[in-house]
Measured scan of single mutants.
Amino acid sequence: TTQFTVHSPEQAEQWKEYAKQKGLEVHVQKKNGTWHVTIH
């Protein structure tokens, strides 16, 4: 599991796309103005 924080919805979307291409599961949670992205 990879977990990191991004600071814009655009970055979060890019990671979603990346994960989809790799066939991975991605979870994005918005918290205090940042987005926590978890890739399984």
Results as ranks from 00 to 15, higher is better:
T1R: 11
T1V: 14
T1H: 09
T1F: 14
T1S: 10
T1I: 14
T2V: 15
T2N: 07
T2P: 04
T2D: 06
T2I: 15
Q3V: 12
Q3Y: 14
Q3H: 14
Q3D: 06
F4E: 02
F4K: 03
F4N: 02
F4C: 10
F4S: 02
T5V: 14
T5A: 08
T5S: 07
V6K: 01
V6W: 03
V6C: 05
V6P: 02
V6Y: 03
V6N: 01
V6F: 06
V6T: 06
V6H: 02
H7W: 10
H7I: 08
H7G: 11
S8C: 07
S8D: 06
S8M: 04
S8H: 05
S8K: 04
P9K: 15
P9F: 15
P9H: 15
P9Y: 15
P9R: 15
E10G: 06
E10K: 07
E10I: 07
E10Q: 09
E10F: 08
Q11K: 07
Q11N: 04
Q11Y: 05
Q11F: 05
Q11C: 14
A12Q: 02
A12V: 15
A12C: 06
A12Y: 05
A12L: 13
A12H: 02
E13I: 07
E13Y: 08
Q14K: 13
Q14N: 07
Q14M: 14
Q14A: 14
W15G: 00
W15C: 08
W15V: 05
W15I: 08
W15S: 01
K16D: 03
K16R: 13
K16S: 06
K16H: 05
E17I: 11
E17L: 12
Y18T: 03
Y18F: 09
Y18A: 03
Y18S: 02
A19H: 02
A19M: 05
A19N: 01
K20D: 04
K20N: 08
K20H: 09
K20V: 08
K20P: 01
K20M: 11
K20W: 07
Q21R: 13
Q21D: 08
Q21N: 11
Q21V: 09
Q21W: 10
Q21E: 10
Q21H: 09
Q21P: 02
K22L: 14
K22Y: 13
K22R: 14
G23L: 04
G23Q: 05
G23I: 02
L24Y: 11
L24G: 02
L24F: 11
L24P: 01
L24K: 03
L24E: 02
E25Y: 13
E25I: 14
E25P: 05
V26W: 06
V26F: 12
V26S: 04
V26P: 01
V26D: 00
V26R: 00
V26K: 00
V26L: 06
H27L: 09
H27E: 11
H27W: 09
V28M: 04
V28A: 02
V28P: 00
V28E: 01
V28K: 01
V28Y: 03
Q29T: 13
Q29F: 12
K30Y: 15
K30E: 15
K30L: 14
K31I: 15
K31L: 14
K31E: 10
K31S: 09
K31D: 08
N32R: 06
N32I: 03
N32Q: 07
N32G: 12
N32C: 11
N32P: 03
N32A: 06
G33D: 09
G33E: 07
G33L: 05
G33T: 04
G33F: 05
G33K: 05
G33W: 04
T34K: 13
T34L: 14
T34F: 13
W35H: 02
W35A: 00
W35R: 00
W35E: 00
W35Q: 00
W35K: 00
H36L: 15
H36R: 10
V37C: 00
V37Y: 02
V37T: 01
V37D: 00
V37E: 00
V37P: 00
V37S: 00
V37K: 01
T38V: 09
T38N: 03
T38L: 07
T38Q: 05
I39Q: 00
I39W: 03
I39D: 00
I39T: 01
I39N: 00
H40W: 15
H40F: 15
